[in-house]
Design a protein around this nucleic acid. Structure first.
Lengths: 132, 132
DNA sequence: GTATATGAGACAAAAATGATCTTTTGGGTT
DNA sequence: AACCCAAAAGATCATTTTTGTCTCATATAC
């Protein structure tokens, strides 16, 4: 019913990046240490964030990670969905196969309302705000 | 990030009960079959619901389950929290030990807003409405 | 007493979570 | 070119949670 550690860690790491000089490359090692998460795990998480275009990475000596866009233009929702998958109150809203009763299910509209509300809140918060 | 099957099943079962004549005892077997969930599992789930006072049970021949209160007075939230635990966006909001940074954490207020919104929506929906 | 139904608890397979380690790839530096 | 540093990719593994099942105890109607 809540965020997993992956999500929590990703958020911590991204906020740390948002606090740095824009464009400056930061070692995953440094991030992991200061936000207090296992570095190997954070490296894995940041791999995913790179693939999805939330951060840019540079290999080799002097490499590291940096935000792909200005912190003000990255929402909390983006970060969360990148690592946790889409906001979803109940699988039946996503998977059509999960419950074949979608058509006449009275709870369905409730799930949609929940998702819309949560989505809106998370959309409205940027990394820039969180880094203050 | 969403409901587990336990939650989904509990809701289906409770809605089925809400559709019956108030006070009438229904076999867990009948519920399980018509809402299409494994009976052993549903029995276990209903045990918990009984313990928490959402349904009343009667043992022995002619026994079964029935809602403990009128369907209009049982909210969707109660059902969900009974089986899934409290609505919680991120563990740090619940466990104090999870992140020791609660005091200065900028994301904390966001989690609270999310929980309040979701809680409010789920509070506002009763089994009576869902059973229509 | 017997048939029937839930209560409680142990048990187990499968999936998700949380993490580590190794190997590969690509850039800088010399 | 040779070499080192650092990230990417992927394999592996441990732990926890989910999703059930099964057995036995207990309560009740007849």
């Amino acid at each position: 019913m809540g965020l997993t550690r992956k999500g929590e860690y990703a958020i911590r790491g991204m906020i740390y990046l948002a606090r740095q000089e824009p464009g400056k490359l930061i070692l995953v090692n440094e991030i992991a240490e200061t936000v207090d998460v296992p570095q190997s795990f954070l490296a894995k998480i940041f791999q995913g964030l790179t693939r999805l275009g939330l951060v840019r990475s540079s290999r080799g000596a002097g490499g590291g990670f940096t935000l792909a866009r200005p912190a003000a233009e990255i929402s909390l929702r983006e970060v969360i969905e990148a690592v946790e998958g889409p906001i979803c109150a109940n699988r039946c809203v996503l998977d059509d196969g999960f419950c074949n009763r979608s058509a006449h299910c009275t709870v369905h509209p409730v799930w949609h309302r929940v998702q819309d509300q949560v989505g809106a809140i998370l959309d409205g918060v940027s990394l820039a705000e969180l880094s203050k």
